[in-house]
Design a protein around this nucleic acid. Structure first.
Lengths: 152, 152
DNA sequence: ACGACTTTTCAGAAATTTCTAAAGAGTCAG
DNA sequence: CTGACTCTTTAGAAATTTCTGAAAAGTCGT
């Protein structure tokens, strides 16, 4: 099953999944190209052609993927075109980027705790929320460490 | 610091954080009400009044929160109004609901692997993706177990 | 420094998401 | 059974997000 059309379909399906996971539409499709290309690296122009999208939207997508650390810009060997490729630890990075969400949750919970009295049911609920996200934040480093160990 | 206005502010800030985390706007605001109310349970009407939103949008928000298991409907004691409250394990549930996302990622990766040849760089990338999400899926149960042990 | 080529920026258009209002359905008391 | 009250559904409006096209900016070879 080494069929180009089937690959394209799988790529688009994966993009849809990534969108479900919270990525922006074009960023997701771009990421799918990085996954499914048979080249080592691709240029913005190649992606635009592949997705039949405007250069502008690809530019924005690449920018956001760079920001979250999923892809990297390669030192372009004497070419005018910038080359990009998927980073090795892309998936761990994508997962880890939720740390910032967890941190935000913690802060929000802390603010709520400070604003409520001890006996208030809300105080108790917020404390529970805080405890969970604190636990989570503490577990993540060890989790990623196990992952890196497993792969070597 | 037991100030009603400060509580309201903290609630709205928390709602914004939840929206960042991927919840829909009104679902997030509704969840914030469940967290910050000083009652044991609230009705749809009370939430609508609190958020100055239509009954319809609250109905939709409650439905989605019920679906993901963040809140529960209480046996209403002889009242016409349905009572809801935050579930005890709400935060673990919210975190766990991403399992479905992980499962979807796994399937998408598997489809891509099946569609590419062994030597293809894409094949390698997709295999890496698959390995990570498989690892993640395997770790989650133990993680949640540790959490439940910690709280008792 | 110039010309060719590529990427980035940005205002407006398109599409999607989200909310509301109003009608409908369900439920309980009497 | 009826009336009063609440929740749900849905079509359309409003708001937000996302994409495009064109102009501007950047880069490399000559």
């Amino acid at each position: 099953m080494n069929d180009r059309l089937e690959q394209w379909r799988a790529a688009e399906r994966l993009a849809l999944t990534l969108i479900e996971g919270g990525l922006q539409r074009m960023a997701a499709r771009t990421l799918a190209v990085f996954l499914f290309t048979d080249q080592d690296s691709v240029t913005a122009g190649e992606i635009a052609e592949r997705l039949e999208a405007s250069a502008g939207s690809i530019s924005g997508a690449i920018k956001s993927l760079l920001t979250v650390g999923l892809i990297e810009r390669l030192p372009s060997p004497g070419s005018r075109r910038e080359h990009y490729r998927l980073r090795d630890d892309a998936w761990a990075t994508l997962f880890t980027s939720q740390n910032t969400v967890i941190q935000a949750m913690l802060q929000a919970a802390a603010a709520g705790i400070a604003a409520t009295a001890d006996g208030d049911p809300a105080h108790h609920r917020l404390a529970q929320m805080h405890a969970f996200y604190e636990f989570l934040l503490g577990e993540l480093p060890a989790l990623l460490h196990r992952w890196h160990q497993q792969t070597g």
